[in-house]
Amino acid sequence: MKSSIPHIASNTFREAVRDRVLYNLIAFALLLSGAAILVGQISIEIEKLVVINLGLTAVSLFGVVIAIFIGIGLVSKEIEKRTLYTVLSRPVRRWEFIVGKFFGLAGTLTVNTFFMAIGVFAALFYVSHRFVRADALIFVALYFIILEFLIVCSLSLLFSSFSSPLLSAVFAFSLFVIGSFSADLRNFAAMAHGVSRWLATGAAYLVPNFSAFNVITSIAHEQPVAGQLILQNTLYALFYAAMALSGAVLIFEYRDLK
């Protein structure tokens, strides 16, 4: 039997485009071009740094916001509109629906990131008038940002599979913030004793480690990223997203949709 995942993914992508998600690109372009022009006038010698830092931070934050706000509605909206019943009445399994939604959202964010990356490089060319070899490192940062999106998408879907959109947004955003402090969480765990140490360590490993994906500052200073980090971050993001997605599939599989 042919899998329905590609169909659901492409529908999710089309729906996101119809919802004018890609309009954020306009805000991004304005932000970046404004910063590129303005910073040269109000600061000293950081035009390139600002374009890289601001550009990549905006790619990351815009993407995370899109991932959360689209992701939390992917399941609940289908239930609300009752389109889910039509989909599931066809030969589509519940897990295929969840996985298809995940790939659709991830695809939307990848396309969005691709256009934003063009904007970052255009702004970089505007301020530097040329590209240097070290600018290629920006691709590594963009790749890490996409890995980050995979995790956020999977978490949004996980929460969306059992909770209301509002609560899902709160959970997903909170996890994003906590995930940015995961290194601190591990340090706290190391300082604790007994049961609390085990609990804190467990919590530290359970929350996603978003700080591992943030190489924006070092890349802005043209510091190379180790190949091992790229490999291990890739595997970490894939396993973590798979874990959250499996949780979403498990919950959705047993969810009473009547």
Binding site: I46, N53, S60, V177, S211, N214
Partner: peptide, 21 residues
Amino acid sequence: KRASLGYDGLMACIYWTRAVQ
């Protein structure tokens, strides 16, 4: 640094611009 959620490079640029201004 904590409040910047890892986007400390951008925050540094903002504070540097503020110092210059």
